[in-house]
Nucleic acid binder design. Structure first.
Length: 213
DNA sequence: ACATTAATTGTGT
DNA sequence: ACACAATTAATGT
């Protein structure tokens, strides 16, 4: 397991810490679409993503789902961190966007390491900050951005994550992620297509224009 | 290769 | 938001 961890984390963690992780963490492979954490599940391990991407979303009282952000390799989800530390249940849902691999770290260890390894402390702290920022922009997008803009950044996010200009999913699924209706998404996508920033096929959306990195 | 069906997407009200 | 039309993909014969 160490061989897998080292290339990703050797610039972040000291070697001794990587050894510790290798000793105590459990490796888990997952497939696209797999539900990794659901709302209300108690958390006894902290996930650390190795490959692939995970979609973090929140659910409304009724049926509405709303995507908060995506996690990429080398990161963890700070919402889960909070839940782990407080020993509370998950407030979010984590679903695999692509297939991938993650390691699960027991809570006791993650707490123990906080006191021992500065690099670990740092990592947790940075993760918190990053996610907090993403949360803020998620809030902004809901509160202030038009659906059109939200959809656009959603597309950009997806293409970044899959490292491809091709996004493979139906309008229905997007609508679900953005907590909107399919018809609306279709209409906006149609506009994007007419603006020549997108190409539309059934089940596939291709970004043509600039990458707004 | 063609017909049938289901799923996805487009449009008007 | 809804209903329905049109298009595309999947499946059987």
């Amino acid at each position: 397991m160490k061989q897998i961890l080292t290339p990703l984390f050797n610039s972040v963690f000291e070697e001794k810490l990587i050894d510790e992780i290798a000793n105590f963490a459990i490796m888990h492979d997952f497939n696209e679409g797999e539900l990794i954490i659901d709302i209300g599940t108690p958390l006894n391990r902290m996930p650390l993503l190795i490959h692939g991407a995970i979609k973090i979303s929140r659910e409304d009282q009724k049926q509405g789902e709303l995507v908060l952000y995506f996690i990429e390799k080398g990161n963890t989800c700070s919402m889960t961190l909070t839940s782990c530390l407080n020993n509370t249940k998950s407030e979010i849902r984590a679903k695999a966007e692509t297939s991938g691999k993650l390691v699960l770290i027991p809570i006791e260890k993650m707490e123990e390491w906080l006191g021992i390894y500065p690099s670990w402390r740092n990592f947790i702290f940075i993760s918190y900050n990053n996610r907090l920022k993403e949360m803020l922009s998620a809030i902004d997008s809901i509160a202030f951005m038009s659906l059109e803009d939200r959809l656009w950044s959603y597309l950009i996010d997806k293409s970044k994550i899959n490292k491809s200009r091709e996004i493979h999913c139906t309008h229905q699924e997007i609508a679900f992620d953005l907590n909107s209706s399919r018809v609306v998404i279709s209409r906006i996508l149609k506009v994007f297509e007419q603006n020549n920033s997108i190409q539309l096929k059934q089940g596939v959306i291709t970004l043509k224009d600039k990458m707004t990195n």
